[in-house]
Nucleic acid binder design. Structure first.
Lengths: 261, 261
DNA sequence: CGAATAATTGACCGAAATCAATACGGGTGG
DNA sequence: CCACCCGTATTGATTTCGGTCAATTATTCG
């Protein structure tokens, strides 16, 4: 049922973010504000760059991506989204987007009309702040992606991306911390990490040889989370997760601040 | 006078952004909400990564930057800010930042306490939306920086950065569209574009040889804006500027959509 | 089962990093 | 006012990482 999807998807919104999890009344208000549940199939474009939009979408099931493409055909995935994330809430204030939004898998999305969001914004400052927060989380992710491209080499970039994805999926209970499905081709991973598909293939083999992680047929199996995080220089602070989740996602025992030093 | 600085700085906030310029009453409200004007000297760090903050700062004069640094000493400038920009409004919802904020020149900043911003948010949804917009503008910039690092080669990255900076400075009346001061060393430009200082030097010489632009002793002189924008694949849409400013910043005559094609 | 898409592997190339030496320039103090 | 110095910029020689081109091999899916 559509209804059930909405509830499950909404429950994931801002999950495991201290101080920013939804209160029951806010949850209810959001649920009532959904105007439609829609399905898209893999590859379908939900919002085209530049077009005026009156709606924003929250991802309920599946994975979506946001991509920027240049005049010359080269393009880059600037974000990947998982269930419970407000994919293009940015459109609420920007009105039109500077990138495309597309489905990476078959997906279910909840649609919010901007007029509904304006009502929320007028009457519910605390909830508004949580929604604002979720867009700034995206910005923090963007910054880290900039860092990754600029400061890390190929293997580290991929390692970083895998650690990040693992941490985000842990937060919504999709990854247990070791293994998760990642329905992306090596070309798409390349478009995330600024590498060619060929080089992604080489890097993944190396990660396998190093016994750090095994990525094959759309499944990521992390063999040494600690080592992978080390290689990828991964520090999960920027995900603003509850500390238990954050430390677990680094391959450290939760409940302590990490080894002394 | 501090007072005068605040007014001048605030007048630049969201200048030349259609639908998002401040109304006079909003302007006044913001001006009253400033709790302090502070000066920082070049290199000083305003907010350190991770530290709890209760304030956000709007840049009145000078240039600031936001930097992410990795464990190994490599670091990247993830944003550069100009007068009239709300440098770390992100901290209002995030509470602590994932990066450092520092002064690139001697600067004057206006300080807003978060409790003041909460009051604004509670009572003034339209103004809140404009402020929200300004943070999403940062996110759009981030996305473009990701694209730049991933899809462009060294010369194009630098060209893109120069075009972007020129456009942003035009919007606030600091660049006439050809020439402006850019108080950054080549190492800092390198930290923006993901290049070494050595290679930045080579690229700048090439841009000079190509008669595209001349960067020396902190002054950028654009000789062929059209050509520079072409090389840098620069499309100013993501800056959400008023169309006249946007087209002018691409080296096209304002008032038309560009040459037929 | 077969076609199309995705992944792998090798040979070669090129853009930018690195290492290193030198020149410039602008501020300070003699 | 000049000389000195330190940070910045320039230029060259060499190396390296990842891209490109190309040929096979796996997978997936109709």
């Amino acid at each position: 049922m559509q209804h059930k999807n909405v509830i499950e998807g909404l429950e994931l919104l801002l999950r495991n973010r201290d101080h920013f999890q939804l209160r029951p009344d806010e949850f209810e208000l959001l649920r009532e504000s959904v105007c439609e549940v829609r399905e898209l199939s893999r590859g379908q474009v939900a919002v085209r760059q530049g077009e005026e939009v009156q709606i924003s979408t929250l991802l309920l099931q599946g994975m979506m991506t946001r991509k920027v493409d240049g005049r010359d055909g080269r393009r880059h995935l600037v974000a990947v989204h998982f269930p419970g994330e407000f994919v293009d809430l940015h459109a609420y204030t920007l009105k039109h987007l500077d990138h495309d939004v597309a489905a990476l898998t078959n997906v279910k999305i909840a649609v919010f009309r901007h007029e509904q969001l304006m009502k929320i914004q007028a009457d519910h400052p605390a909830l508004t702040r949580r929604l604002w927060f979720s867009t700034l989380l995206d910005a923090a992710l963007h910054r880290q992606w900039v860092y990754r491209l600029s400061c890390l080499d190929a293997a580290s970039r991929v390692a970083h991306f895998i650690c990040e994805t693992n941490a985000r999926l842990m937060a919504i209970g999709v990854s247990g911390g070791r293994k998760f499905g990642l329905p992306m081709t090596q070309s798409e991973i390349g478009e995330v990490c600024g590498l060619t598909n060929v080089h992604v293939s080489r890097v993944l083999r190396r990660l396998r040889d190093l016994k750090l992680c095994d990525v094959s047929r759309s499944v990521v199996d992390i063999l040494d989370l600690r080592g992978l995080a080390e290689l990828g220089q991964f520090q999960p602070d920027y995900l603003y997760l509850r500390s238990a989740i954050a430390t677990a996602s680094m391959g450290q025992a939760p409940g302590r601040a990490g080894p002394g030093k």
